[in-house]
Structures are given as C-alpha cells and as structure tokens.
Write a protein that binds this DNA or RNA. Sequence first.
DNA 1: GTCACACCTGAAAGATACTTTCGGGCGGGT
DNA 2: ACCCGCCCGAAAGTATCTTTCAGGTGTGAC
Lengths: 301, 301
Amino acid sequence: MKESFTSDAPPAPAALAAKVRTLAPSMTRSMQRVAEAVAGDPAGCAALTVTGLAELTGTSEATVVRTARLLGYPGYRDLRLALAGLAAQQQSGRAPAVTADIAVDDPVADVVAKLAYDEQQTLADTAAGLDTVQLGAAVAALATARRVDIYGVGASGLVAQDLAQKLLRIGLIAHAHSDPHLAVTNAVQLRSGDVAIAITHSGSTGDVIEPLRVAFDHGATTVAITGRPDGPVTQYADHVLTTSTARESELRPAAMSSRTSQLLVVDCLFTCVTQRTYETAAPALAASYEALAHRHSPRTR
Amino acid sequence: MKESFTSDAPPAPAALAAKVRTLAPSMTRSMQRVAEAVAGDPAGCAALTVTGLAELTGTSEATVVRTARLLGYPGYRDLRLALAGLAAQQQSGRAPAVTADIAVDDPVADVVAKLAYDEQQTLADTAAGLDTVQLGAAVAALATARRVDIYGVGASGLVAQDLAQKLLRIGLIAHAHSDPHLAVTNAVQLRSGDVAIAITHSGSTGDVIEPLRVAFDHGATTVAITGRPDGPVTQYADHVLTTSTARESELRPAAMSSRTSQLLVVDCLFTCVTQRTYETAAPALAASYEALAHRHSPRTR
DNA sequence: GTCACACCTGAAAGATACTTTCGGGCGGGT
DNA sequence: ACCCGCCCGAAAGTATCTTTCAGGTGTGAC
C-alpha cells in the first residue's frame, strides 16, 4: 500500500483545514456552515453522529453527507474518522499558534513575523493538499514534451515566467505567454506530445482559459495550476494541481499567498522533471550556471 | 479525575497498547486475538468494520464488541475513533526525515515535502535576519517617493516586477527594469525624493549595480535587496535589506530559495508601505481589485 | 416585471454497520 | 464419567449512515 494521494479517492489526513478553505467558495451556504463547524472544532464534531452534526449546524443529514463527499471522503463515517485523527494530532502536537491579522498600526517587526508565518503556513497547506499523482502525471508529460507553453496574467504571469526560465535551464523548449492574443496564436501550433500549462488563482481568468482550451483541442497535454479545482479552467485540463487559498485581509491581498503557493508547485514540477531527465538536465543546469558566472563582477574579498 | 486506568470512566486516548497488555491476562483467547490485532495495527484496524475485524481475527462481531467494551469504550464505534486518532498521532510522529537533501530517486511525495520544508526554513531565516531598522527606513523613503525604479535581472527580475506590480496597485509610480540599458537611461532621470531599488542575490550583478550607482549619484534614495551584504552593490545603497542564503544542491539551485527570500522582503516592504500610506493606499487597492473582477468568467458554482 | 430554469435543501425511505440476545459447545472440577 | 460454568458465534434487533425525491428559493432571460 503506497502513500499515493489520488485526486478524488484520498481522504485528507491532516490537511483538512486547508481543504476546507480551498473548497469553501464552491460550497453552498449550508455546506459552508457544516465545513466551518468541522474545521473549527474537529474534536467536538468527531464525537457527533450525522444527526447530531446536522442539528448543531441547523441543517439536514443529507447536507452533512454531501459536505463530507465534497471534502473527498466516501461518506460521513470516514470524515468522522479523519476528524478523530486530526483531533488527536493537534491534541498531542503543538497548539497551532493562531496569529492575529496584520493591523494598520503594527510595528515593522510584527509585520515581518506575521507575513513570514502566514507564508510558511501557506507552504505547509499547499504541500499537504498537493495531489502527488496529478503532479507525477504532469511531470511525466513535461519530461517528454517537445514544447511547453505556459499561460498566466497578472501576478500569475510572473510565476509562469519563473517556470519557463527554469525549464529552459534544463534544456526544455518552454515559453511563458502573458499576452492573451499571442498565447492563443501560439496555442494552435501545439499538438500531441506538447504540454500547455495554465496558471490562475481564481480558475476563471478568461485570458488564460482560452489558450488552454485551444491547446486542449489541438491534442496537447494540458495542466492547470489553480486554487479552484472546480473552476472553469479545469474543464480543459488533463491534470489539475491545486494551490492553497489562505485567508486574506485588506492588508494582505490574496495575490500574496497564492503566489507563494503557486511557486511551490512550480518548484515541485521543476525539481521532479529535473530528476526524470537527469542525464540531460544536469549538464544543461551546469552550463547555464557557468554562463552566468561571467556576468558578475570579480568577487570582493 | 486523573488519567489513571479506571476501567469504567475514561476511554484511553493514546495509551491503548499499554492497556491491551495490562488487560490481556483477563481476556479470553478470542478477545486476545482481537486486542492483539488492534494494538499491532491501529491504522489498519481503524479502516475495518466490525465484520471486517471479526473476519480478520477469525472471530465474531460479538467478540469484537466485547473486546472494545473491556478496553473501556462504550462500543466498537468509539474504539474505532480512538484507533484513528492513534494512527494519525504515530503517523505525524515519524516526519523529521525531510532534512535530507533531495536525491535523484526520491519519490514525488518526498520531493514535495522536502521543498516545502526548505522554503519554510528559508522564510524563517529571512525573517530572523531582516534588519527592521533598515526596512523601516526603506519604507519611509518609499511612502513619500515621487517615483520608484526597481532593477533586477534573471530570477530577480521577476521579483522586481512583482514589487512594481504591487506598488502600482497602491498608487505609487513604480517601474521594474530588466533591460540594463533602459535601466541606466531611466536612472539618470531620478533625483532626490525618488527611490531606486536593486535586487540581486549575488550582490555583484553588474547589470543591476550600474543603474543603482547612477541613481545614487543623482541623489535618489537607494535600496539594495541582496544575499551578500558585503557585496559591491551595497556601495551605492543607502539601505541594505539582507536575504538569506540557504544551502543549495545540484537538484535545488540557489535561485529557488533566494527567490523565496526576496519575495518575503518585497512583501514586507509592500505591506509596511501600505500601512504608512493607508489613506490613499486602501482605496487604490480596492479599486484595482474591483477592476479585475470583470476579467473573470461568471461564477461556476 | 414576470416567467422559467436550475439548484439547493430537507424529509423520509432504504441500506449498512453496530449491538444485543440466545443457545450451543468446550473446558474444568468432582 | 458427569455436571457446571462460561466462552463463543449466529441471528435478530437497533442505531446510524446513505440515497432518493419532491418542494422551495434565488437567478437569469425575455
């Protein structure tokens, strides 16, 4: 029995709070109430029966079961088991130090500490929620790709460029597009064996979905990196990599944590592809490193 | 009421194995088989139903329930919950194997865990090493800046763009330059009251140092974000913000952790500037958020 | 402004898992 | 060898979970 986390079957072990946040937007009101209760008090909810939890949240048994399903469990029974596990874990483990939100009058040192903590949390959530099977499939496609196109606009555009830069360094033919028109005109060139990657936090950025759809229709292997695994973009994605959605506030826009999350996914993609193509990737990496050395001034000291 | 082994009042939380041994002598043969299975593989048994466990141990459902009772639980259901908790607990216990370097033959899941851990470490290091006085000074300069120029090439160029994007959102006039020639020609336009920021991990990237020097000579306030506080770039920097340098390896180029570190610094700069210019920044942020909403497809839900 | 549609929601029936009851059978004691 | 006690599992009984279905509500189109 392997550790593998297949995308729909696997119940989340401890990454439940993260999963609740990720899926919350796609939930209905009643389901959100249930999810909230579950995330807020795992221990308490684990002690409850379906009927009990339904009454507590003012909903029906059916809704509770539906929520459990949405969170990735076969039924409420399994959600309850996971809940018990989670409760035991945070019981024995350290209390998750809940940091307050960043305030307007926080001193500089506090801002630094809070931002660092939040981003660390985002990384942990992302790693816990990442589907390694999907990731493996995406890596396999990239490793043998003839050509790779990456779409992203706004903040995600920078992530797209980051990935393209990395892939170029290991000898892949990769290009990042932030111009939607050029992206589409390039997408029509793709065919089977090529890979197209769309990066969008909202999962509904038309400028990014359109080129992915075109690539998909032309037979390319398509990958979506998004925070909304139920968003429109996944319609045209062979493989979906989910980024985590951290709570945001006025002083901490969503773009900040989504970018952190996206970059981790991108790093994972890159590293795994490097592994699989080590024979060619290693010398390519060394060469690019060597080439850059001449761009630096002579060492001081 | 203490945690003592009173057989009727408290169900055992995690001291289950001990309880099994304690009570084993008073058990009948069949019950011992059940208890043994439970103590031997909590995780596996938690996944089983009464019937399943009965079959596995070659006994009957009634015996399983009796065993659960003897161990202090109201019924099998509750034993199962405790089992799930126990499993999760000893699952989380064995995790500190991520400190090792990434190997070529690491499975995907390990790569994800190690990368996430490393980046978290980088964030912690950066936050700990960041000079809040220097940061405060840079923030003060930015908050009143007439114009902001940001220099960075390669991976740092993306960080520069990220910062520029953010500052633009709160109403500052910021521009990121990755073309060294254009950077220099723009730098000569700067004067006192303007801010120039150079981002370079090595601290010795000529293409970035040169425009910063020009800006410095023209009286602009200059900031360097670098991993080498003793590098050439700091010669022309009024304020130096130090990023952390994590250990690197063949499969994990330095660019990865330096980027993470740089982005945290950039986020700190942005957030603190937003604080100090809250009156104008908040509405600007809200407006940019609003403008983007129309770029998304209608909700799926 | 009205209509139609889709979708959420909960009640109740249906299925599953757990608990209890009860009689058979195996061992020890005399 | 016989009797007694008690362990054990089959089956009936009950609680819990799951599914189905019909009613209601909000949303978009005309």
